[in-house]
């Protein structure tokens, strides 16, 4: 059986007036049913553009220039816009960092969730409202029957994100793309939302693509991890392997530079600062100029993503 989602050699470029910006430069990864893949990286590494590419929502002047996006074996890039629309929000749902941007401020939340059900499932108004109450219950919103009559601004940030999750789940998606779903939330609310996503994933066997910069969140909820830098995957492995024996110097740097509760040290490690943006990339690996490993012969050539042990891939000449 093919994986739920398989991405092959995905490239998304932006054709701006000033320059060609290579946001995504050739990605390979897969997500299975019931599995969470975390896409991790710092701002500008291309992780959000990857998510938008999967749904074919790349904004102008960006374009997917190459690659295959196989969802249940079917290449989404080849689908006509009509069919793509049926998949979006239905079989593949997405939640964003800031819930307020995905909610319409002038509609009651019951109507907004109901709209998804009416469009994708053909329910009538009354049925849709009933189903909306069920969904709000499932995502842990207390007194859902009253809450459906409220407007987004009447809810707290955590409650809004629960509403957005309820909307995303309305059509039983097979794949959920969550782009920094808890970054705007307080830590206790973050824990609640991550626990909720975990339960939903287990109960529904949903595949999840979790986009985040928070290595704590990754450690607690991912099955597999892809570490991204400058539009490329640097390291790709099961979560235990990435945290236990990271091989790529960038992964090692990220893990070393975070402060950890209960491990107070005098000084944090730091990796060289610059995350290069896609413009004027050097011909080789963009990590080259700050890579501490010596690998002179290959300097200037992009290393391939090599499998160094089963399931553990690293983009590095010397690892």
């Amino acid at each position: 059986m093919p994986p739920l989602l398989e991405v092959r050699n995905l490239m998304t470029y932006f054709f701006t007036r000033a320059a060609l910006v290579k946001a995504v430069r050739g990605l390979e990864f897969s997500v299975d049913t019931g599995e969470t893949l975390a896409l991790v990286g710092e701002s500008g590494c291309g992780k959000s553009m990857t998510a938008l590419s999967l749904l074919r929502l790349v904004p102008e002047p960006g374009r997917i220039v190459e690659g295959e996006i196989l969802f249940e074996g079917q290449d989404l890039r080849r689908l006509p816009p009509e069919e793509m629309r049926r998949i979006r929000g239905n079989q593949i749902a997405m939640i964003f960092q800031e819930p307020m941007t995905s909610l319409n401020p002038v509609f009651r939340i019951g109507e907004q969730i109901g709209e998804v059900l009416r469009l994708h499932k053909g329910l009538d108004r009354g049925e849709a409202l009933g189903a909306a109450i069920d969904l709000l219950d499932q995502v842990g919103i207390p007194s859902a029957r009253q809450r459906i009559h409220e407007y987004p601004h009447q809810l707290s940030g955590g409650m809004r994100q629960r509403v957005v999750i309820a909307m995303a789940l309305a059509c039983d998606p097979k794949l959920l793309i969550a782009d920094e779903p808890t970054t705007a939330l307080d830590v206790t609310i973050q824990a609640q939302i991550m626990a909720l996503l975990d339960t939903l994933k287990r109960d529904r066997g949903m595949g999840t693509l979790l986009i985040t910069h928070d290595l704590g969140v990754v450690a607690e909820s991912a099955d597999k991890v892809a570490i991204m830098n400058s539009g490329l995957i640097m390291e790709y492995a099961p979560v235990g392997v990435v945290f236990d024996r990271p091989r790529h110097p960038y992964t090692q740097g990220l893990l070393a530079c975070i402060p950890r509760l209960g491990h107070k040290k005098a000084r944090l490690e730091s990796i060289a600062s610059r995350v290069p943006v896609g413009v004027d990339l050097p011909p080789g690996s963009t990590f080259l100029d700050r890579c501490p490993e010596p690998f002179a012969p290959q300097r200037g050539k992009l290393p391939p993503l090599r499998e160094i042990e089963p399931g553990h891939f690293v983009r590095c000449w010397s690892c």
């Binding site: 707290s156 450690a219 607690e220 975070i258």
Partner: peptide, 19 residues
């Protein structure tokens, strides 16, 4: 509530309810 960057320590924990 602070997520610990170590998958080996994953597990059930007491979560504070409410906001």
């Amino acid at each position: 509530a602070v997520p610990i960057p170590d998958p080996a320590l994953r597990g059930e924990r007491y979560l504070m309810q409410g906001e």
